[in-house]
Amino acid sequence: MKMKASPVLTTLFAGAVGFFIGVSFPVDITPKLQCGILPWSSSFSRNTMLGRLWGAPFRNSSSGTPNATGSEPLVEVATARNPVEGAERRLPPGIVVSESDLHLRRLWGSPKQDSPARKYLLALAVGYGERANVNATVHKFSDNFDIVLFHYDGRTTEWDQEFEWSKKVTHVSARKQTKWWFAKRFLHPSIVAPYDYVFVWDEDLGVDNFAAEPYLDIVRRHGLEISQPGLDVTKGPAPTYYITARKNGSEMHKTDAGGEHCSDVGKRPCSGFVEVMAPVFSRDAWRCVWHMIQNDFVHAWGLDSNFWRCVDDPEEQIGVVDAQYLVHHAVPTLEGQVKACQYEEMFAFRSRVSRADKEVANGTSIQN
């Protein structure tokens, strides 16, 4: 006589086999199925028999330590995010260094014992023929300055042979390039970020009546973000813009309005103006000016007429320091077809500025 299996027993047997197969090959499906009515949810204590039997296959034993209630977290989510937007976002934020400087460092010893970057930066475009004047200029700047020389004639090693200080400054060489070409490529705001003030000077300046630290004292006292030393018009050629001429008996001035050459204080260059010859920028002002330097231009003619855009109040934050002044020797280093290029760049720059202003105005009118 054949025994027929009871349908009930068959069903129970199949369920038991399926259960133990599931226990042997657990799959973490809790993120998709987590719900308050399921046995592995918080409504079922893991200490109950049903909770232990049902929850074990689905609980990730490596998910962390129990919390205050005694239950283990089912899913851990990483919360640390790198706020950097570029490719460096792949790095942990704590290792990202977004700024640098032009301070020289040793190849030996502990990095902790290296001297830090200085408070200020002097950048000079130089040729070896003007080395005597450059030497005099460098000695007017204290040990609080890092110095970078931009060599437009390709001669660098000779400086070390003649001047001891040359071995302690940074040298950058590119033949037949201008100060502003160098500045765009080597004075990026992230590179000059440690410096409170940046001097971007020509090489042909007489400095007998100038000292950098007293100059900066005046700049701070008057809240100047962009400035230059006054020019002694009794020695050297007449200035291109009379606002830059030194005023006798004055510590500093911010306007030439009302004088022989300027009648309107609101017009450049009657106020809020310094030249590209020997400007001094605060860190914040330089960040703005650097972005205004056109990468495909080299002479920067017309740039100084737009320095006012890089401060909040040009009539108050741009000025000429009279108590510390210079003589412009006007040594010609660029000749021939260069002059035509300078004018072409200036007109092109004016056109770009005008077009950019119109784009902003049109965008504003659309928004309004």
Rank of each mutant, 00 (worst) to 15 (best):
K2F: 13
K4F: 10
A5W: 13
V8I: 15
L12S: 11
F13D: 12
A16L: 15
A16Q: 09
A16D: 01
V17G: 08
F20D: 01
G22V: 12
P26G: 02
V27Y: 07
P31A: 07
P31N: 09
L33F: 12
Q34A: 02
I37L: 13
L38S: 08
S45E: 08
R46L: 02
R52F: 08
G55H: 03
A56T: 15
N60G: 07
N60V: 05
S61T: 07
S62C: 09
A68W: 10
G70T: 07
S71L: 12
S71W: 10
A78I: 12
T79S: 07
P83W: 05
E85K: 11
R89H: 09
P92M: 08
G94L: 14
V96D: 05
V97W: 11
D101E: 02
L102N: 08
H103G: 11
L107W: 09
S110N: 15
S110A: 11
S110L: 14
P111Q: 07
Y120A: 00
A132M: 09
T137M: 15
H139I: 04
H139K: 15
K140A: 08
D143C: 12
F145S: 01
F145N: 04
I147L: 08
I147K: 13
I147C: 06
F150A: 11
G154A: 03
G154S: 01
R155Y: 02
T157L: 06
E162R: 13
T170A: 14
H171N: 03
V172P: 10
A174G: 04
A174R: 14
A174F: 11
A183Q: 11
K184F: 06
F186P: 04
H188S: 07
P189W: 05
S190W: 08
A193G: 01
Y195M: 07
V198W: 05
V198L: 14
V200N: 12
V200W: 05
F210K: 06
A211Y: 09
I218D: 08
H222P: 02
I226M: 03
S227D: 12
Q228K: 04
P229R: 02
P229L: 01
P229N: 00
G230N: 05
D232Y: 04
V233E: 10
V233T: 13
P237W: 12
P239C: 11
T240E: 15
T240Y: 14
A245G: 02
R246H: 09
G249E: 05
S250D: 10
K254G: 13
A257I: 10
G258V: 06
S263F: 05
S263W: 03
V265E: 15
R268F: 09
C270T: 12
C270L: 06
S271N: 00
E275S: 11
E275M: 04
A285T: 06
C288K: 08
H291G: 15
D296P: 00
V298P: 00
A300W: 04
L303P: 04
N306C: 01
F307A: 11
V311G: 06
P314I: 02
E316G: 01
Q317M: 12
Y325P: 03
Y325R: 09
H329F: 14
P332I: 12
T333Q: 02
T333D: 00
E335K: 15
K339P: 05
A340D: 10
Y343A: 10
M346I: 01
R350N: 15
R350S: 10
R355K: 11
N362V: 10
T364M: 14
N368K: 12
